[in-house]
């Protein structure tokens, strides 16, 4: 029976289908919000799904000179990693499907794996745009990853556990950590934007410079899978940040409201800025983001040590 339920958890809910559907809907919400902010109409609700089906049906053109196994395998690994990460987060405000001590680290690693796959996929081809895109993707990975991690570490330290579900429970029972650790929240949110390569951190796929960066050579299924991976990452990222900073996720309604509120903030941020150059991105993260997150973290440690928290 437990095999069946874990299979269900993997395939239907919270992993697999439900997550894919949620990812597509969140992508639509994001696109629609940005469009509205930019005075455009935006896509219809099923557009992301239609895009995905269209791409899945298309022929994947494998360019010359690539490692075929990697070319086919990387998108699959990327989606698998994102789906795996979903097992540890309180999706829809329910208890995670799987949980163990320290699963925060695993979840974060799984999310980074997607970006790594993206970078490798770009570096795998001979296309110049892909290679430059891959370089930028990886450069960006190194710049936002540490601050993002540090910003999620703050709540973990306060809660005294590295298990996502426990932090979620702790957050639900205490003051919202957006109030106690505002800097951490900002860094986490902006870090999420960097992770998802949303504007203004979209230098790795800046279409006016390098076409679509690492994904330039992907045309069919691979592209669809990478997009799905990104969508799932969006949902997971929003879930993580709102679970940690917005007072935990205990029921589906709270999940919906909190993540959508975050998405709205993301959409506003996306439409407010011009794209940062990759050197500006790195500078911003290491000079400002990492420093702020570190200060916040030290503060948390000191306060915790002195018994205030």
């Amino acid at each position: 029976m437990s095999e069946l339920s874990s299979l269900l958890a993997l395939m239907i809910f919270p992993g697999g289908l439900a997550l894919l559907a949620a990812g597509l809907l969140y992508e639509w919400a994001d696109r629609k919000l940005v469009a509205q902010l930019q005075n455009r109409l935006g896509p219809r609700w099923f557009q992301p799904l239609a895009d995905t089906f269209k791409l899945l049906a298309k022929e994947e053109i494998v360019p010359q000179g690539v490692h075929k196994g990697l070319f086919w395998g990387l998108p699959v690994v990327a989606v698998a990693a994102a789906l795996t990460a979903a097992l540890y987060v309180p999706l829809a405000g329910l208890n995670p499907a799987a949980a163990f001590r320290g699963d925060l680290i695993v979840a974060l690693y799984m999310l980074s794996l997607l970006t790594l796959c993206l970078g490798l996929a770009g570096a795998n081809t001979y296309n110049r745009f892909s290679v430059i895109g891959a370089t930028r993707t990886l450069t960006q990975l190194f710049s936002y990853e540490a601050p993002f991690m540090l910003s999620l570490l703050g709540p973990a330290l306060v809660a005294g556990t590295w298990q996502i579900s426990s932090i979620n429970q702790y957050a639900a029972g205490n003051t919202w950590m957006i109030l106690t650790q505002p800097v951490g929240f900002v860094v986490a949110l902006v870090g999420l934007m960097g992770k998802l390569e949303l504007p203004p951190f979209d230098a790795p796929e800046a279409e006016t410079e390098i076409v679509s960066g690492a994904l330039t050579e992907y045309s069919g299924r691979g592209l669809a899978l990478f997009h799905l991976g990104k969508d799932i990452e969006l949902v997971i990222g929003l879930t993580l940040v709102s679970a940690f900073y917005l007072g935990g996720l205990t029921n589906p309604l709270a999940f919906l409201l909190k993540t959508l509120a975050l998405l709205l903030i993301l959409a506003v941020l996306q439409s407010l800025f011009a794209r940062l150059r990759i050197d500006q991105t790195v500078g911003l993260w290491w000079r400002v983001g990492a420093l702020l997150a570190l200060v916040q973290l030290l503060l948390v440690i000191v306060l915790k040590g002195t018994g205030v928290l």
């Binding site: 902010l37 930019q38 005075n39 455009r40 504007p199 203004p200 979209d202 800046a206 006016t208 439409s271 407010l272 800025f273 011009a274 794209r275």
Partner: peptide, 16 residues
């Protein structure tokens, strides 16, 4: 110019 700089909001506004 705004579009080249990834500032699509300004792009949409000016063209409107």
């Amino acid at each position: 110019q705004a579009h080249e700089g990834g500032f699509d909001t300004l792009f949409m506004y000016t063209w409107r």
